[in-house]
Design a protein around this nucleic acid. Structure first.
Lengths: 135, 135
DNA sequence: ATCCTTGCAAATGATTTGCAAGAGT
DNA sequence: ACTCTTGCAAATCATTTGCAAGGAT
């Protein structure tokens, strides 16, 4: 179990139960979109509002606690920032699995020509297909 | 200049000037979001409606003429389906440059372990950073 | 002539905002 | 105590839909 309170206070964000619930929910499930977070978190805290989730997702992205994972034809999901990895995304059930591979490994293995003047600072690699349950 | 009429008729879609304008606009600029297409296309056809753009973007995706490019924290862009490539996306000006590299090359160069039971059918590789104009 | 497509306006859905009350430090 | 955060309701923005008129084949 991660130190959610530390994540928050380290960024001068108060450790409210709403924020901790959101982080716990995302961490438990790996990758979630706004509605999934809302549904999950409401079970424990029925009064927690959607607006609070929106505000905090934005805030936590700005503070590098969360990362957005945009997905073709679906609403974006969010994950806790963690060691560099790529995503296997199921086209059927939209589940996401991670595979850890460092930034340097990703960039170098792609074997790209140095694109003149373009400075790469981050990568986003998604492999779409069908997970073991869906094919 | 591509054969937009052929793309459309090949999919049993009528070659209206609205559809041709949309395709020309996307092709000319490479990657565009809905609003950019609307603004661009309105210059030649002031009556062309936003609803028509939405309807056609969906239709052309279903017919594999267009491909969605989802982007962190921005509205998705769309491009003409063409040979396999990856994207260099500028975090400052959101411009996108293509680099051609085949599906097989992408998958094999990533040097992934065979993820049990996951069948990869498509890839999405975006390299974020700063383009030559923006750093 | 027929059927598909468009443009409009309305409906719906998603996200953001302002502000008074409440919670965290 | 002080300040930040929440929840609500309203506002705004994005997307979809129904339908009559117009356009493509």
């Amino acid at each position: 179990m991660r130190d959610y309170i530390g994540f928050l206070q380290g960024n001068n964000l108060k450790a409210t139960f709403q924020r901790i619930s959101i982080l716990k929910s995302i961490d438990k499930h790996g990758h979630m979109n706004i509605d999934e977070i809302y549904d999950d978190v409401k079970e424990q805290n029925p009064t927690l509002s959607l607006a609070t989730i929106y505000k905090n997702i934005i805030l936590m992205q700005e503070n590098n606690i969360l990362v957005e994972v945009p997905i073709v034809n679906k609403k974006s999901k969010y994950e806790i920032r963690k060691s560099k990895h790529i995503h296997y995304i199921c086209l059927n059930c939209a589940s996401i699995e991670d595979y850890e591979i460092s930034f340097d490994e990703q960039v170098s293995s792609l074997n790209l020509p140095h694109k003149e003047g373009f400075e790469v600072t981050d990568t986003q690699i998604n492999l779409y297909g069908y997970c073991s349950k869906c094919h």
